[in-house]
Amino acid sequence: MDAAARARLLNDYQRDFPLTSQPFLQIAAALGTQESQVLEELRGLMVEGVLCRVGAVVRPNSIGASTLAAMAVPPERLETVAAQVSAHAEVNHNYEREHRLNLWFVVTAADRARIDAVLRAIEAETGIAPLDLPLQREYRIDLGFDLS
């Protein structure tokens, strides 16, 4: 697949993915290529790390509950504490950030009680109380990211 078709694949199909029995065939027709080429390209882009996935972006808390949590971890303990946090299956994003609050993670669970239990467990394991920063309002609907 040439660079122009690859760029269109990444930019033009971030939303309104075809809901037809063979969506990759429809994309291939639009890009002037073959279904097998589109599938191969997508697999390759995932292997390269350019593509996270082909899938859905879900409204926060549409199923279950979630929160953003932050911890101020002494730098020399960061690796250990980050591993303790990541070990929880309910933690699905965990980032190091340049700040006194240097560890930021998202906790997602079936309900709010489970989130409270995970935050308490992390505090008990690490001795550091996570700040609990649940979403109160969302001011932007995520429609994709213009790469052009």
Binding site: Y13, R15, G49, L51, R59, G144
Partner: peptide, 22 residues
């Protein structure tokens, strides 16, 4: 999927690029 997208539970379905790699 159409219904979930119409109700807003699913925001979008599509390719999700890794911004960092791009």
């Amino acid at each position: 999927l159409e219904r979930l997208a119409a109700s807003g539970a699913i925001r979008r379905i599509g390719v999700i690029p890794n911004h960092y790699a791009l």
